[in-house]
Design a protein around this nucleic acid. Sequence first.
DNA 1: CCTATAAATGAACTACGTTCATCAATAGGA
DNA 2: TCCTATTGATGAACGTAGTTCATTTATAGG
Lengths: 198, 198
Amino acid sequence: MASKTETRRAELRAKLIDIAETTIATEGLSALRARDLAAKAGCAVGAIYNVFGDLTELALAVNARTFHRLGEAVITALQDAPEDCVEQLVVMGQAYHRFAADNYLSWCAIFDVERPSGQAAPDWYIAEMEKLFGHIIGPLTKLFPEESLENRILLTRALFSSVHGIVVLGLDEARISVPASDIDRMINLVLRQLTAPK
Amino acid sequence: MASKTETRRAELRAKLIDIAETTIATEGLSALRARDLAAKAGCAVGAIYNVFGDLTELALAVNARTFHRLGEAVITALQDAPEDCVEQLVVMGQAYHRFAADNYLSWCAIFDVERPSGQAAPDWYIAEMEKLFGHIIGPLTKLFPEESLENRILLTRALFSSVHGIVVLGLDEARISVPASDIDRMINLVLRQLTAPK
DNA sequence: CCTATAAATGAACTACGTTCATCAATAGGA
DNA sequence: TCCTATTGATGAACGTAGTTCATTTATAGG
């Protein structure tokens, strides 16, 4: 049975995550400020700290949502993909690209939150990452049934990392941004080559 | 003829970059603080702003050095590499990995400095990047002499981005870090596959 | 040597995240 | 229903940043 306090806190928590999500999506992680947040939520500054340990914790809650949406975007893209395993990987890679481009500030926030060195990643991060990896290792197992599990995991990680690298550097507007079509061509190229039989 | 003022400023500038370089290398970009810097340099806080527009500008000066050292590390590694083009690419990829691992905080700073959206990358960044790309496109041209320049540039970028992605995610200790040997195996795998004839 | 100009200085200003003494609401017993 | 111990909410205040600018100090030409 939820006490009045618990309900209020749960509501405030949800409201704060919603507001923070919008702020991060439209203005970026650096625009997440306690006073603005309190003003928008109609609560005291201190109230934020009754619900979250600090602002990083709130940002992480938003990132969990973003990462989850990313996973769903990949799954959705996979639904009307050809049965061919290589094509499925390409579709996933391009879905990753599209999500990152369409949700650029939110996607950046996943990698920009303060990472206390030596501290383990949050559970949701590991869980979502493994879910993503799960979608990749499936087609790879069909393509390379004779490979060891260890090698397949390594290849999974290599594929994901390569696509991630192409998207990270390709979308980095503050440095040298690359046309979206070139990013897609690189993803295509890399995934087809990496899955070509030796 | 350098006036006394100019000399002093040039000296302070150099001293500040040295101190900032050490700070970033040992404690990370977030440990770069104006007051600490002034104390270590034996100057007033305001003096920093006579020489640099803001702390970001100072951080960028350090990053230019880091990026240059990275380029030199790659060139050095290339010097005693086999003549085989694929091997050369692997050597460069692993040199990139080694440099990032050995200079982790400095290397992170290259990507962590505040990037004012919409603003172009500094000249030194573009120049060093093109120098790095130059080392990659050489072997690739030998490997694929029939390909168009455009395709070779695309492949160059794809190779670099893939290795970068593997290193970025592999070294990210705050999330899930990967054994160095696995990172090297992935670099090996990716580069050999991406340069394999179709 | 003197003084007009330029440079260096660091206290002060602004903008943060975060805390905590104070005030208000709650809920269980009379 | 009322009362009060306890728990929760509040926002002024604190600490720590980057950055500025009135003041002090040094420079260099006459």
